[in-house]
């Protein structure tokens, strides 16, 4: 009896491990949340520069921009039908009700990033308009496609 249960335990643990990996790998809610966390982390590098709290650093700014560029390329695929609820998602129903509008907002974000990368801003004064425009797109998309949490 004891032996039997003892044998079952590793099987159970393995099954659970596979299941949880599968959930982590498969959940678009979690994947897009993590992608946005990366976007935020990159914003926290550039934001203080725009705000005048940190010295402008072209290399660091460009690194943030490329982080956003790859995030923008992936982001739109992470909102399949049926992922509108669950796992504390902040995605607004408007994403599925107005998919074209959401996609256009993502394109606007991606385009602004491309413009800023092409500008390769050397100074803060050069960076302010182009990176500021990227920040503006964050706001535009959140306003309408992200729900406000209490």
């Amino acid at each position: 009896m004891i032996n039997k249960n003892f044998l079952r335990l590793p099987v159970l643990v393995a099954a659970l491990a596979i299941a949880s990996v599968a959930v982590a790998g498969d959940s678009p809610q979690k994947a897009r949340h993590e992608l946005m966390e990366g976007v935020l982390k990159a914003a926290k590098v550039v934001g203080p520069m725009l705000k005048g709290e940190a010295e402008y650093d072209n290399a660091a700014a460009m690194k943030s921009l490329t982080t956003w560029q790859s995030a923008a390329a992936e982001f739109g695929d992470l909102f399949p039908e049926g992922s509108d609820t669950g796992e504390d998602t902040e995605a607004a129903p408007a994403i599925w009700e107005d998919r074209a509008g959401f996609d256009a907002a993502l394109v606007a974000w991606s385009d602004a990033i491309d413009v800023a990368i092409a500008a390769n801003p050397a100074t803060l004064d050069d960076a302010k308009p182009v990176i500021g425009a990227v920040f503006g797109k964050c706001k535009d998309c959140h306003d309408g496609y992200r729900i406000e949490k209490e």
């Binding site: 926290k44 503006g136 706001k139 406000e148």
Partner: peptide
């Protein structure tokens, strides 16, 4: 700018 000190965006 619409950004909080945590660089989250203004909402609602």
């Amino acid at each position: 700018s619409g950004f909080t000190p945590e660089f989250d965006t203004v909402g609602g």
